[in-house]
């Protein structure tokens, strides 16, 4: 495949990056293998676990299912872009406060997913458990949070704490708070 590289520009956690890629490379592998951005994790590479969740142009995506070549020009936020260890995003702070993690490997994906999920709920997007899909105000019950977060597996079993953490910050504008670029 050598010689068939494509040039891709990405803004990653607020920094403009450019890289020449094998067109088979996913956003996930571009971040981890080509750009050294390790704040996004690989758990399955097949859209089955959610560990690779990042926020692209405001929406959460599974970066293992996104070819980098088709994301030229995209604005990508990973967990490291939402906050820093000294200045956590409120969602990250809530995860720490509620011990919503154990091994921590699913955690960056959970955090990105949760932040974007709250935006989706705020925008009135229904879920499988919403009683009325035409209702544009979402009552973010625990069942709603669980349903909307079910793409993010946590094998350590921190689910009940993750839901509490998300409920702690639900209603706050977490996507724009904190130290990051989102």
């Amino acid at each position: 495949m050598a010689g068939h590289e494509v040039s891709v520009r990405l803004t990653v956690d607020g920094t403009a990056r450019q890289v020449d890629l094998d067109p088979r490379v996913t956003v996930l592998d571009a971040l981890r293998d080509e750009l050294g951005v390790m704040s996004v994790k690989k758990g399955c590479d097949h859209g089955q676990c959610g560990a690779c969740t990042v926020i692209v142009d405001g929406r959460r995506i599974l970066s293992c299912l996104a070819l980098a070549a088709s994301y030229d020009g995209a604005d990508v936020t990973t967990a490291a872009g939402l906050g820093t260890t000294d200045h956590l995003n409120p969602m990250q702070q809530a995860f720490a406060d509620r011990d919503a993690l154990q091994c921590g490997y699913c955690t960056p994906g959970q955090v990105c997913s949760a932040v974007a999920m709250l935006e989706e709920a705020r925008a009135g997007m229904p879920s499988h458990v919403s009683p009325d899909v035409s209702d544009t105000t979402v009552d973010l019950t625990d069942a709603e949070v669980r349903e909307r977060m079910s793409g993010n597996l946590c094998r350590c079993g921190a689910y009940v704490n993750i839901v509490r953490a998300i409920q702690d910050v639900a209603g706050q504008d977490v996507a724009r708070a904190g130290g990051g670029a989102a």
Binding site: A96, G104, P108
Partner: peptide, 21 residues
């Protein structure tokens, strides 16, 4: 006691095996 590695883990900056430079 709050997990001392929580800030690194919630920001994705704790280096796991594949991530060691």
């Amino acid at each position: 006691r709050m997990r001392v590695d929580a800030p690194a883990k919630v920001t994705g900056t704790a280096p796991y095996a594949y991530e060691q430079p």
